[in-house]
Design a protein around this nucleic acid. Sequence first.
DNA 1: CTGAAAGCGCTTACAG
DNA 2: CTGAAAGCGCTTACAG
Lengths: 352, 352
Amino acid sequence: MTQRAASKSKPKSPPAVRGSRATGRVTIIDVAAEAGVSPMTVSRALKTPALVQEQSRQRILEAIDKLGYVPNQAAATLASARSQVVAVLVPSLTNAVFIETLSGIRDYLASVGYQFLIGETGYDRHKEEELIATYLAHAPAGFLLSSSQQHDILQSRPASRAIPAVRMFDLGRSQQDYSVGFSQTRAGHAVARHLAERGYRRPAFLAAQLDPRMMKRREGFRKGLQEAGLAADIEVLLPQPTTVDMGAQLLRRVLQDHPDCDSVFCCNDDLALGALFECQRQGISVPRQMAIAGFNDLSWAACATPSITTVVTPRYDIGYQSAEMLVRQLKGEEIAKGRLDLGFELAVREST
Amino acid sequence: MTQRAASKSKPKSPPAVRGSRATGRVTIIDVAAEAGVSPMTVSRALKTPALVQEQSRQRILEAIDKLGYVPNQAAATLASARSQVVAVLVPSLTNAVFIETLSGIRDYLASVGYQFLIGETGYDRHKEEELIATYLAHAPAGFLLSSSQQHDILQSRPASRAIPAVRMFDLGRSQQDYSVGFSQTRAGHAVARHLAERGYRRPAFLAAQLDPRMMKRREGFRKGLQEAGLAADIEVLLPQPTTVDMGAQLLRRVLQDHPDCDSVFCCNDDLALGALFECQRQGISVPRQMAIAGFNDLSWAACATPSITTVVTPRYDIGYQSAEMLVRQLKGEEIAKGRLDLGFELAVREST
DNA sequence: CTGAAAGCGCTTACAG
DNA sequence: CTGAAAGCGCTTACAG
């Protein structure tokens, strides 16, 4: 059954007003006629109400209500060469981390009347380039990205068509290289120092999904261990996507290759959860025989048995603030801090 | 620093071709001139290549490449009164279930050149209405929804402006009430029967986020228990959002109020995980002293210690197939099965 | 504070 | 297979 036929069978809607145009849609022209003003004034009443006389505005709002007028975004975008849509590119949609970031983005954008398109890059640079090309056709007002390469590409467009972008999670190199995030390196460093202070002598680094951020955490972790006089030689790195089960696998690998390992830094909480389950399965006491630290503070970290030490990351705020920074650019506002470090926190719990 | 100033400082782009129009953008007119055809032929070469002579098409593609032409979607939408954007409304973005559904939607839509906008309703009906109103301004080609009320609203629009919609997760009442999902009731029923068959005598139902789907699972569960001759009197229902920690809370409540309870059906895997952690904390052996069943088969269910019995739901497929059903409606194709039951599976594991 | 004119970049509907 | 004309619904830039 087609769309048309389906709706014919339920003709119970309020009899919609037919617009004057051939399409039958109610347009700004119909509203103008109803309110006794020009279309231009209707447009102003919607975009810049302060420039319209109170009385006119009232009549316009009534007309809009009466006719059921809905603005046509496509026409607005075409006429103004500027859309109210922001393109957001995240590495993965199946990772809770990025989802919370999207919530932050959505909350800010909704508050200023913007929409957003979401692209998933799968941690793949080429995919990201493709997506940007696709999105450019939608004339997005700006981009929120999670890698640095594409940032450069967008900025290098001719000035007349430059599209602002903000990079999330990582910090940029300068105030002009707009970014909102925290230092992945320092976060890794903090975990190393914590394990060393607790007295663990043989910490391992476990990671999957080897994107640049993981590598920075690793770098900081190694440096932290070395500063504490510990060896940074135990590592298991796998390129596959992160899963809980992979945490269990990584732990088995470590136990097999390095029986003297006494603690693990899992580069995210999914892996940490899998590692914990594996310890439980093998009857290894956590943290007595094996300490476990994670990353991100996902919902289960605080209430696992034992609760999991992890790095609390400002995911929601990264989304919210990067959206705000982007919109401020769009409005041509001055941005004092173009490199916004939101920091992180180490939540020390029972597992270490 | 403003957008313009920022890009001026990095003038390293390939010198983009300037279009003939006042905006400087490269349009279909520029491509036409370059290829020596009319704009209309360029439009055809892009939308219906079969209608354009091979030779012309070649020249047009070369011109597009040379000029770096990017189609303007806003203009296309305005002219055709039809966008390539689908509006998707899900209850929550922080729930892995819906995220996987979005992946399915994205994969199908990407394959046919559509984009999508995502709205989060927060399980709130009014919020959903608001979102629909907002999205209507973007002239979406269609809607993918997760509740039934709004479905009716859209279908009741005047035929000339009807916007097709498909409902996800739940099944509709008829083949005309487009929907893709599975029977929540039967899934709940299957869990009850399984627990009864395993010999549990005092099963409880634990739920949070009391949306209509939860209520259907509960209904099926109660019915299943009754059919097995068991009482369906132990329940803890909380309206708050689901978290892992809430699973622990719910379990504590049940143990306190019903010390004879020997098994719990948690209406999702987050709750099941929390319940498992709480048992571990209290030294309650799972499944010997307390059996736990979950719902959805999220990543940790299979590898927890003990592994968690759960209902495997076709989340990705629901997204993929509902997107397909929607697009087929958009194309005016015949849809034989407008009510697509994708079923579910009970994964029996160590926890029951 | 308000309006008439022109144009945004594409597609529809018609004619060849 | 191709093209000239008109129009989609709004906003910009100007004039009052």
